[in-house]
């Protein structure tokens, strides 16, 4: 997999649809092969949901980390680790696409 750099920009992939229901983010596969099981859906915890919503095709990962660091007063290194971790997992599951070049 391509190395994730902090100047990269990502947006939600067309292979999934995200919905927010009663405060919970639910990611619904649209095309085949997104989930391990045919009928499974995906959810994330609160911080994952926040990161998902910031992956909007406009902000770089660095900008997302900075915004979160300001909001939570946590060490940027820790936040960066989480952001890169989530992005890597979402990319693996075809839920994100790179939008840097766009």
């Amino acid at each position: 997999m391509k190395k994730i750099r902090m100047d990269m920009i990502f947006s939600h992939s067309g292979d999934v649809v995200s919905r927010e229901i009663d405060g919970a983010l639910i990611i619904v596969p649209l095309t085949s092969g997104v989930g391990d099981m045919e009928d499974d859906l995906f959810s994330m915890n609160e911080s994952g949901t926040e990161i998902w919503n910031m992956l909007d095709g406009k902000k770089t990962l660095q900008e997302i980390v900075e915004a979160l660091a300001q909001q939570y007063q946590a060490k940027p290194g820790e936040i960066e680790q989480d952001v890169v971790g989530i992005v890597a997992e979402l990319l693996k599951r075809r839920m994100l696409v790179e939008a840097t070049a766009a």
Partner: peptide, 22 residues
């Protein structure tokens, strides 16, 4: 390895905290 995304069958494990949709 830490995982961030839960894959689930929501009929068995609803993700919402409140009462959920009607």
């Amino acid at each position: 390895e830490r995982t961030y995304v839960d894959e689930k069958n929501i009929s068995h494990a609803p993700p919402w905290k409140g009462e959920g949709p009607p």
